[in-house]
Amino acid sequence: MISIVVPIRNVEKSLTKCLQSIKGQTYHQLQVILVDIGSIDKSGEICEKFAKNDSRFTVIHIPNSNLSVAKNIGLSHAQGEHICFINAVDWIDSEMLERLITTDKLYNADMVTCRYYEDTISELYLVPGPDETKMVSKNEAIQLCLAQTRTHGFLCNKLFKLDLFNSYPTIRFDEKIGYYEDLLVVIQCFFKSQTIIYSPPPHYHYYLSRHLPISVLQNKAKLTGLTALEQAIDLLVQDPTIDTRILKDYYIRLTLSSLFLLVSLENVTSPLIIELKQNLYRYGLYEHKDKDLRKCHLITRRNVGLGKIYWDMFYKKKLAE
């Protein structure tokens, strides 16, 4: 059986399509755990309707909280041999779980990851990757996971053995982290896995426009992502074969974007801005994989104002490509 965890909060417009895509899977041995995080729209009603009509669906309503809490609750209720996580604004092809579980059994894998689509209103973009099913090293898996800067759904295109989370040392979402919490968990799973399989057929539809970027000014909890990235890097440096430069790029990119947003509205001597400036010295300039980011990092160390000009005029365009 596969346990599926779907965290849900005020997503009534996309939720039915997501849950229908789960209900219509060609693999039927499912436990679908819907965790409704204090929704005030009709999301809770939609969940109850699915649970009433299909005994595989269970709804858990919790007070308003974060995604880490919701995913941990899902993990605590999971009863399958395998588990996956699906974003409530996305959807999956009907054969996704059957294909992944078949591949898992063939290789006796701890994790199976597939390619995915980035969906927008006007296009369907297939994320690049290897063209054949193969076993990948921890380092290869991490580089594939981090290669796409537009997509932050690090959990969603993967099937895990539940024992990967429950065996010692157990893996759970840090409930104090509200950004990149899924990336930290995926890194922990990669690091703990003995066998990781990459399967090229795409099955997951990541609806890009519904995953709107959260600005630091809208939600300073985004800054907890820096803690998640620090912990992931600290874990991976234990294995010298793993290249951590992309993770360090993520860390500096988040630091820079946060710093540039805050300096325009807050006193430049505020403790948060001072802390972000100090973060620019956590990793060396030559620990970057992205040379353009390295240049922006260097300029900002010398002068925040000039760094912001370079970021706005040149680097932001690169991120949008």
Results as ranks from 00 to 15, higher is better:
I171E: 01
T244R: 02
T170L: 01
A78G: 13
L262P: 01
D290N: 13
G305S: 15
Y281D: 09
L293M: 10
G44N: 08
A221F: 05
D36N: 14
N279G: 13
Q218F: 05
L67C: 07
C145T: 15
T170M: 10
C47S: 04
V186I: 14
K71Y: 11
D131C: 11
D54L: 02
P271Y: 03
Y281G: 10
Q278R: 12
D243Y: 05
V11F: 12
I273V: 12
Q194E: 15
A228T: 00
P200A: 09
S3P: 05
L144R: 01
Q238P: 06
W91K: 05
H82G: 13
R56Y: 02
L262Q: 08
I299H: 03
Y207D: 03
F57L: 04
C296H: 04
E12R: 06
V5T: 11
K192E: 03
T244W: 00
N139A: 06
L236V: 07
K158E: 00
L261K: 07
V263L: 14
K71E: 03
S76Q: 15
D290G: 11
G129E: 02
P63I: 14
F173S: 12
L67W: 07
D182R: 04
H28I: 06
Y286R: 00
E81K: 09
A51V: 03
D93L: 09
E48P: 03
V185M: 05
N87A: 11
E12D: 06
T227L: 13
Q148S: 13
F260I: 03
V69P: 04
D163H: 06
N10A: 11
L272W: 08
A88F: 14
I299N: 08
N10P: 00
V35P: 00
L236D: 03
L319E: 15
